[in-house]
Design a protein around this nucleic acid. Sequence first.
DNA 1: ACATGGCCATAGATAATACCTATGACTTCT
DNA 2: AGAAGTCATAGGTATTATCTATGGCCATGT
Lengths: 304, 304
Amino acid sequence: MAMSQLPTLRQLQFIIALAEHGSFSRAAEAVFVTQPTLSAAIKELETILGTVLVERGARGAVLTPAGDAVLERARRVMTEAEDLVIAAQAAGEPLSGPFKLGVIPTIAPFLLPRVLPALRERYPDIELFLREDLTDRLFDALRERRIDAALIALPYDAPMIETHAVWADEFLFAAPPDHPLARNKTLAPSDLTDEPLLLLEDGHCLRDHALAACATGSARADFAATSLHTLVHMVKSGLGATLLPRMAVEAGLVDRMGLEVRPFDPPVVGREIGVAWRKGSARSEEAIQLGDAIRDILQAPDSP
Amino acid sequence: MAMSQLPTLRQLQFIIALAEHGSFSRAAEAVFVTQPTLSAAIKELETILGTVLVERGARGAVLTPAGDAVLERARRVMTEAEDLVIAAQAAGEPLSGPFKLGVIPTIAPFLLPRVLPALRERYPDIELFLREDLTDRLFDALRERRIDAALIALPYDAPMIETHAVWADEFLFAAPPDHPLARNKTLAPSDLTDEPLLLLEDGHCLRDHALAACATGSARADFAATSLHTLVHMVKSGLGATLLPRMAVEAGLVDRMGLEVRPFDPPVVGREIGVAWRKGSARSEEAIQLGDAIRDILQAPDSP
DNA sequence: ACATGGCCATAGATAATACCTATGACTTCT
DNA sequence: AGAAGTCATAGGTATTATCTATGGCCATGT
């Protein structure tokens, strides 16, 4: 079958600019060519496609319905092509250049100080841009290509998102010294059945995962904390007990707070921390590699 | 941010050919350029991407891992670009040129003779290629781009497929004249509770939809027909009763067969016929338009 | 009505580049 | 060693992408 001629990416770039600026002259300016150049290119594109894409008027240019259809697909082709470039560059020299990483608030302050130095050492050419936000908002950012990858807690179901497990973050029980359960050396999840837990406010995945860990437990409905630091202060002042990620405790979250911290009996309860990326992302390989690197660093002997 | 230069579609086409032929010279031949041209283009592509994509050897060329990553995305970009061309041409002159339509076997022989003439009249430039097959295989064909659209029965859940309802195809009860239920003028679905139905063999969606229509009914496990024509002959010879689509009956499926055919009381039971296309298909608009055209033709006064 | 200033199209010249032919260097196989 | 394949390089040509300069057209304001 006779392969009908394809448009060039340049032409697609031009018609996108034309649609965005509504005028040949201004669109031409935006893509750094002269108006006749853009004019000719659009005309050529219309010839190739065999369809009029633009209505020329004295007050500017408007896309025809066919033009709109082309525009939408042109945008897709262009972003795919840009992704190809990024993916190729990443494949050639992984984890170099700007890399935008989102991290959920219950991990970021405890993980990053611990791994960032080693990470910079291992990948000297990386420029990490960090963004701390709730899981949902990070997923939105992934889908809209505002970030390249995110460190989040699993399980968490989201369309268009793929994940790779990095490490298991165990939950520890924390309470004031006079709390009845603080007498035990270890706890079973079932001990929490009648213990209303003090948790982070809605939207934090830690809240949901903590509740899931003690299937029968419940949260205090009257109080909720906005950060883990606030949370431990509320626990200290006697408002209730809570579950904390081991990583936060190891990072010193409860140091000199006078709180009792107890592990659970095996099987350990907790959450899985993983990297997430947009399905089809140009940097999915790098996201996995970054996750594995973080795991390595956490397991390194000098890191307690 | 400095927009790094994009590759050309031509260059992507070249590296795809190179990957497929494993040799610069043969790939060049395949895309109708000389070997030095292709050589230079690949080199230029590698410069743009800043990565070596191909391992040159005395026995040909092999893609590097980075090359493989690029190849996969290049294929995507190329098919998206080709789709853009098709979509643009279709938007300019819808339902013209070759259009490959799949139809399920329980519709095709009864619908097509009725609508094809009017369809050709309404869209004189269309070249309809028809393919009769089971729903699953049509969906596969849609996903693999072997057909542009399909006429199938809903509801039918399938990933990557979108649908548009065209008309409701009512079920009629058919049985030999001496059948007990043939005495009634109309039936309720519940009448079929203890009536093992003679149905098409597995894989035909009509079988599943018929069973769903009489929620409590069951199929004869010992006999099944391979086509509606076989089915009515089996009914005639006393093997059991069945449900037939009204469209097949109207097309003369049971004429001079000596079978009794009865409608159901309202609310009517039946199945929805619709058009289906691959999500993102370049011809989804045309598929919808085709479905609407078929609905119009079926409702036209001269069509009983 | 006329002039003005915005639009886009056209013409012709020039710079960039895509492509070809001819050739060379290097492997692999005979 | 020679033959036959591989890909890279060099230099010339054809194509095309782009520029400047200009013209026609339509709305708007005087």
